[in-house]
């Protein structure tokens, strides 16, 4: 690793704010990963569901999870590295 890169890493480590921002990004990514899994699962449930009412409930739930994911991606774009 180049000296400059090492120095950057050290500065990031010593800079409390930068570390905090990194943690926030990492946590957001972790939640987004879980949400993606949840949306997939709900979509699979929807495929198997025959009852109209339950289909509607599941559809709403999927829309909400999707909106949460969109919001998360927007937030990630806005958070500096």
């Amino acid at each position: 690793m180049k000296t400059r890169k090492l120095l950057d890493k050290l500065v990031t480590y010593l800079d409390g704010d930068a570390r905090q921002r990194k943690k926030e990004r990492d946590d957001l990514k972790a939640v987004l990963k879980k949400l993606k899994r949840r949306e997939k699962k709900l979509l699979n449930h929807l495929k198997d569901e025959k009852d109209g009412n339950r289909q509607k409930t599941l559809k709403n739930e999927i829309d909400i999870v999707h909106a949460q994911r969109k919001k998360g991606v927007r937030l990630l774009k806005g958070t500096p590295d």
Partner: peptide, 11 residues
């Protein structure tokens, strides 16, 4: 959802 630059595994 559109993935931001840099790999975002979950999005």
């Amino acid at each position: 959802p559109e993935t931001p630059p840099g790999k975002v595994d979950g999005a």
